[in-house]
Amino acid sequence: MEIKTVAIIGLGALGIMYGKQFADHLGNDAVRIVADRQRIERYKKEGVYGNGEPCAFHYVAADAQMEPADLLIFTVKYAGLAKAIESARNQVGPKTILISFLNGISSEQMIGEAFGFKQLLYSIVAGMDASKIGNQLTYTKIGFVSFGEKDNARTEKVAALQQLFEKAEIPYEIPEHMMHKMWSKLMVNTGVNQSTAVFATNYGGIQVPGKPRDTVIAAMKEVIKVANAEGVPLRESEIAGWLKINDALSPEGMPSMRQDTLQHRLTEVDLFAGTIRRLGKKHGIPTPVNDFLYTRLREIEASYA
């Protein structure tokens, strides 16, 4: 199995960053940016830029009939996933590998139900400092992709994606315990994304002692308690590793949720605090920090009007 064609649906920060990386190493013809025709016209008219360079992406309309892609990557926000799944149907064949770069632990279920779990790989992306304002994306770190099968098996799909990432020079890892890794990423997102948005700050604001950093850590500890109740052995010692990764990011950079509040977009609070609060209630675990973050983020969203 060899991946020769890559389809990406969702041209936000991750879609642009990884789309550019694939196109630079595989060639534009091997990389499809899938969107509806109206959105494609806007991309072509306004342009899409990565670190100041125009991205000459190969766009394909969602309703166009063509040979399925070897790999389909979802890079939309969770609120747009259902629509993205419908838009992606012409890219999926019986051998298409499916992978989601969305936050949280919910998108794989939706994608698997739509196309089949046998074609699905699980993943998280972390360590990037991409910031997208309008049609301009800036970043200094491309981050890394952790991916694998849900049962951690080293399958042909895993080997094919590994080979592709090496060819495209995308940093990656294949963890021993994929679901643990996904919960670990949910933990850091729940702390970092929500705290920077609530306290209206960037990475620099949580890289120094103070209430924003304290909130990051406290929110992550609540995730650990909930994960343990769900049978996932997260440990408090993992918090230090994530703080080290975030402390190495550009202080001026911002996670996606802070970018959302700056641009008056709805956030993914339901994926983070919403998930932890729901599972906390299920197991009788108090989640006061995530309760605070959830309430405050809903207030921020309501203030847009």
Rank of each mutant, 00 (worst) to 15 (best):
R278S: 13
T261R: 03
T287C: 13
V269S: 03
S256V: 10
Q259H: 04
V289N: 01
S250H: 14
G284I: 13
T261L: 04
V289F: 04
V269R: 00
M254V: 07
V289D: 01
L266I: 02
P251G: 08
T267D: 00
T267K: 02
T261E: 02
L266V: 01
T287E: 07
Q263R: 10
M254S: 13
P255L: 07
R278I: 01
D270W: 06
T275R: 00
E268Y: 04
G253L: 11
H283Q: 13
T287Y: 04
N290S: 05
D260M: 10
Q263V: 02
E252A: 15
P251Q: 14
E252F: 12
G274V: 08
H283L: 14
D270Q: 13
G284V: 12
K282M: 12
Q259G: 07
T275Y: 12
H283S: 14
S256G: 11
R265T: 03
P255W: 07
F272M: 05
Q259D: 04
T261K: 05
L266Q: 10
T275K: 04
A248D: 15
M257K: 03
I276M: 06
R277L: 15
V269M: 02
D260A: 10
L271M: 09
V289W: 01
Q263D: 03
E252K: 15
G280Y: 01
L293S: 02
Y294D: 08
V289E: 00
M257I: 11
N290Y: 06
A273I: 01
P288C: 08
P286W: 06
G284L: 11
A248T: 11
E252Y: 12
I276L: 09
G284N: 13
F272A: 00
T261S: 05
H264A: 13
V289S: 01
R278K: 15
L279I: 06
N290K: 07
T287F: 05
E268R: 04
M257S: 03
T267G: 00
G253C: 09
P255D: 06
R277P: 08
N290E: 10
